[in-house]
Nucleic acid binder design. Structure first.
Lengths: 266, 266
DNA sequence: GCCCGACCGTTTACGGCGTAAACGATCACG
DNA sequence: CGTGATCGTTTACGCCGTAAACGGTCGGGC
């Protein structure tokens, strides 16, 4: 009954994801535990069963081991989740994917921001159940506003922009605008994606009953129902991103015009 | 020791919040349970102790009642949380606050979007620990993309924009851009706010050790440390919001110029 | 007056959770 | 052949969400 996605013209970030999903659940291998194997298994587990299903006992089981065995490599559940987040974020810097996403060798700051955005989006689409964790976990350095855990990423961002001529203040403002855009867009995208699959998973009672929740008192909703449910995430992402870049470009130009000025973006 | 916030020039949304916090924890009143009292208590509890601290037993205790008593009014914990989210979102439409936020009597669609944005921001600042729930809970109507629970709010949004001349398609696109902006910005704001208070709560061991996590390998971070930790959320929110409105205005103008055109924003 | 159901909070119980602590088993090295 | 380190298991504790049975306190019909 109907394909899962109606990808009109294909989403490159999603395609990259699908191509690289050969990991699979590993399941009941006898032993040889280590922190890395545990993190990998945890990510796979969350991808398959959702965050709330992850318990120490169950994770242990998929590794063919009792729950307590994990505690030799991980201080506790919370730290495990921190580890999952760090691990997932670090894949941004993995070069071996070899394609156009690797952020370190970029071609100007706009190109850098584009690569970074699509890199993060790929992560979000590859691990939709993990991504909310990235957004909600307390940051590595709480004084960084907004706090986005990976110091390496923040450093990379700020370094690139200041190298490109952004005064510190403008680079910081850009960092905030950029990360809040990215977070908001991707969080909505994965939430909706999760909602879709959970819909497919369990039709849950009368499908008609909940399919159209009586919208008679919501005329605008009723009228735009089809439009609202259409997925144009990729295109919208692109446009919003480009708009943000335009805005930053404007800031940079203005800053250069009146050099020495503090360049107060906000 | 030291005031909590260094509010330079005051944040109106935050001020409105602080003025209205007279509710207090209610604590051990004997009986007279009902769904409303439970929801109110749950919100107060989360505000004071954080989401993860909320358990049925503890919530019962603050109401002077055993955990199981709650189940007569609430089907279970998850539904309780849904109720909390709905309740908090509905306060957007409470008129009795009487001030400039009430969304229903607005002055043009820009004014409406401004009111709505600040209304949501007030909610986020008033209940920083509840807000992430608003963002992460599955939506009331899963087919709405992005799913933002309150159908009433979506309806209100779409109705206002189409009344103002936006074609359906543009209104939907605007809804997505707007809600993802709002979500991203506010989520970062409350996360960082939560990080701050949890920092104040428990200095947790040697304060020097974790205060400056050795940034020697992160020069840009080190250089902009002060800038990064400064709170300009209100100003940045305002600027990003205005920028979004400008963009929507441009779309509307272009649409009008070539009327009958589909007005494809994305 | 009395009984009886409805209402509503309590008690008890169960399986699962995170994790502290004690306990083997295995194995490299003196 | 110890013998200590390494690493997974067992046991146990307190807390969780919640199903099910229970009791106590009413208001209305006989």
């Amino acid at each position: 009954m109907a394909k899962t996605t109606s990808d009109d013209h294909r989403d490159p970030d999603l395609i990259a994801v699908q191509a690289g999903s050969a990991a699979a659940s590993e399941m009941t291998r006898p032993a040889g535990l280590d922190r890395d194997r545990i993190l990998t298994a945890a990510i796979a587990f969350i991808d398959e069963n959702g965050l709330s299903a992850l318990t120490m006992r169950r994770l242990g089981a998929t590794l063919g081991v009792e729950a307590m065995a994990l505690y030799r490599y991980v201080p506790g559940r919370e730290d495990l989740l921190d580890g999952v987040v760090d691990r997932v974020v670090e894949t941004l810097f993995d070069k071996d994917d070899g394609d156009d996403i690797y952020v370190e060798d970029h071609n100007g700051w706009q190109d850098y921001l584009m690569r970074l955005a699509h890199g993060v989006r790929r992560i979000a689409l590859a691990h939709p159940s993990v991504f909310p964790l990235v957004a909600s976990r307390p940051p590595a350095a709480p004084w960084v506003r907004p706090p986005l855990r990976s110091l390496r990423m923040v450093e990379s961002f700020l370094g690139t922009l200041t190298d490109a001529g952004f005064p510190d203040q403008a680079a910081v403002a850009a960092y905030r605008a950029y990360s809040s855009f990215l977070l908001g867009h991707l969080l909505l995208e994965v939430t909706q994606l999760g909602a879709q699959v959970s819909l497919l998973d369990q039709p849950e009672g009368d499908p008609e009953a909940q399919a159209n929740t009586d919208l008679t008192q919501f005329p605008a909703l009723l009228r735009t129902e089809k439009l609202l449910s259409r997925d144009k995430s990729a295109a919208e992402f692109e446009e919003a991103l480009e708009n943000l870049l335009d805005r930053l470009e404007r800031v940079l130009r203005e800053t250069r015009a009146s050099d020495g000025d503090a360049g107060d973006l906000a």
